[in-house]
Every structure is written in C-alpha cells, then in structure tokens.
Write a protein that binds this DNA or RNA. Structure first.
Lengths: 190, 190
DNA sequence: TAAATAACCAAGCAAGCGCTAGTGTGAATG
DNA sequence: CATTCACACTAGCGCTTGCTTGGTTATTTA
C-alpha cells in the first residue's frame, strides 16, 4: 500500500477518479465504479489508496499544487506593472482551471468531504495560492487600477472566475484568455 | 401522500430538509436523519413526499420562487434609471440569498442531484430569474455604466454574487447591502 | 354517529456500500 | 535459485441505504 508515493500508476488512477467525481459527485461514486473505470476489481483499489478519502485528497492536492505552480510561473514572467500582474493572474487562474478542470471542480465543490486532517493539510496550499491574489489585488488598488476593499475585491474576482466552470464551454468561440481580458476590462477604472 | 400540495406541515419539513442538506450534502443526508430532525420516524416521511428526490425538488423550488418574487418586487419599486436598477438587482439577489440561505445553497450546489423531470421544470423558474438580470445588465451596458459583453458580464456578476455564500459572514460588520454597493462600485466605469 | 382522511409508527426487505482477508503471479533483486 | 515485491484477484463481512407494508390513532367531514 503506497501511502504517499506518486507512482505513475497512482497518478493515472487519480486522474480517472477526478473525472468520475465530477461526473457523479464524490458520494455517489462507489469504489466499484472507480475500480471498473480503472480496469481493475474493487479490492485492488486499496493497494494504491488507503481508503476512498485518500483518493479525494490526492485529486484535490494535484489540482491545487498545479494552480500554485502555474500562478507563480506566470507572475515571475511578467514585470512589476500592476495591470500586467492582474492580467497574468486572471489568465493563469483560468488556464489551470480548464487544463485541470476535473481536479479543480472537485476541489471547489467536494472540499467539504475531506476529513479534517486532509483538509488542514490542503488548506495551506490553498491559502498560499490566495495570498498571491491578495498581493496582486493590493497593488492594483494602490495604483488606482481597481476601486474597492481588498478583501471584497479578491472574493468577488475569485467568485467570478471560479463560477466559470459552471457555464464556460471550451468548445465555444471564446478562449480562457478572452475571459480573463473581459473580466479585467470590466473591473478596471480608467 | 401529498404529491404537489403545500400544506404548512410540508413547508416546515422542507425548511428543515434544506438545513440538513446544507450541513451534510444531499447524498449524505439519509431519510432517517431527515425524519429525526422532523421528529418523526423514517417511514412517516413518505407520507409527505413521494421519495427523497421530491424533497430536494421542494427545497429548490421554494428558494428559486422566492428569488424571482423578490427580484420582481425590487425592480417594480425603482425607477428606470439603469444604475438604480442594477443596484436593486444586486441587493435583491443578496437579500434573498441570505434570507433563504439554506434553500439557495442547495439550489446552487445540489442542482445536479435533481432527476431530469424536476430539473426541467425548475430550469424554467431559474431562466425567468436570469432573464431579469440580462435585461438590467443590457440597460447598464447601453447607458455606458458597465463595459463588456452582456453574456459575460452577467455571468461574472452572478458568479461573484453566488460565491458569497462560501465566505460571507452575516454576523460580521458588513451587511448584504454593503456587498451589493461594493460590487456595483467595482464594475461601474465612471 | 359513521365514514373518511391525515399523520404517524413498527418492522423489515432487497440492494448496495466501504473495506478486509487471503491468495496467486510474474518481474526484479539478492 | 530463492526471496521479495508490486499488483491483481476472489469472496464476502458487517452495515446502511431508500423505500414498502400493514396497521393504529386523532381529527375532520357527511
């Protein structure tokens, strides 16, 4: 039983689990469904994961870690201009949201199913990610680019961005970058 | 078995069910938990509702119908000024969101658990509500109050507003009206 | 006063749940 | 060549699930 390893097999199983969790919801996804999707029997599943909870934690950790990495990379690649940084964060957010869509939908809507230990651990990752946002928004406010309270503005922006998973169609005419540009245009005073 | 009536008893049971669905999630809420919260035995539950699905539909219908009523009332009470109408809609949205918080959280996050028939029926209610928003936002765009595409702007605004249920603390210093004012201030170009 | 109705309960069924125990197998390791 | 290990299997345990059945009681209606 691999408690914390990241074998390629386990990574692939985690990806499949994310897909099923999105389709059915965590509670309605049975270990038998997961096993079938993975091409094994339900008993074999517990060789890779200690229990069903651990699969959920693996899915969410994967997604959140990716978001953090992508956001950091995006910020390091642009200059100190507040507007450029705001753009970069919005683009990075939507990019990871739809590149790892399944994992992020699970993170956004099944977080409450995590047991307290896993939730505490993953909260740190998520907090680190949101701290990046608060930093960028603070700069935008000080530069007069956006008007409002830092806390509220960051919540509104993240809400607007996260909600896109409920309506955005990747096969439609708009790219995630289009969305990011439109959102920034909407909130910047000029 | 009352299929579609709205006896006071059934209304009260629906309210209690909404609370449990929020606390535990629809799937993890068992009919035995529901019955206990209602002070009856699990079998008796099926005198009031045909099945568990019907309880969910009742919860969501209640919340959505209220939202529609409140928004219509709010619009009829303000003049034709686009900014006033935008304010009124934002306030009405947050007002109903926190007055019927449980029902709305269920509607937002457990909608997918509805069976196709109930979903189809309730979609009409929700569409009627969203049509009010599109109307108001269209006016705001034409008046130059907000910049952007009508579809995207309405999605962003509703996303920001709906996401408040995940972080807003009614016991904190801010009122729902404060939130509405801040959001409108953030997105209006001036 | 008789009949109908609403509201409830005790008991339990069939199905499905997460998870465990014990075993087999082929590849890598000593 | 013997041992270990990763990975999978079969079989099923103990429990919970949504829901049904058959019947009781209190209140309203004819």
């Amino acid at each position: 039983m691999n408690v914390m390893n990241a074998s390629p097999r386990r990574k692939e199983l985690t990806r499949l689990a994310a897909q099923l969790f999105v389709q059915e919801g965590f509670d309605r996804t049975t270990v038998r469904m997961l096993a079938q999707e993975m091409g094994i029997k339900s008993g074999s599943l517990f060789h890779h994961f200690k229990d069903k909870q651990e699969i959920l934690a693996a899915v969410i950790e994967e997604g959140t870690q990716n978001a953090l990495n992508i956001a950091r990379a995006a910020l390091s690649e642009c200059d100190a201009n507040p507007e450029a940084r705001l753009h970069a964060m919005a683009r990075a957010h939507l990019e990871t949201l739809f590149a790892d869509r399944n994992a992020h939908v699970v993170a956004l809507f099944e977080w409450r199913r995590l047991d307290p230990a896993a939730s505490a651990h993953l909260s740190h990752l998520r907090d680190a990610y949101e701290a990046l946002w608060v930093d960028v928004i603070d700069d935008a406010l000080n530069a007069g680019l956006v008007r409002g309270d830092c806390f509220l503005v960051s919540r509104f922006i993240l809400g607007a961005l996260n909600w896109t998973v409920r309506w955005y169609d990747p096969n439609g005419p708009r790219t995630p970058d289009d969305l990011a540009d439109e959102l920034v245009a909407m909130i910047t005073a000029r």
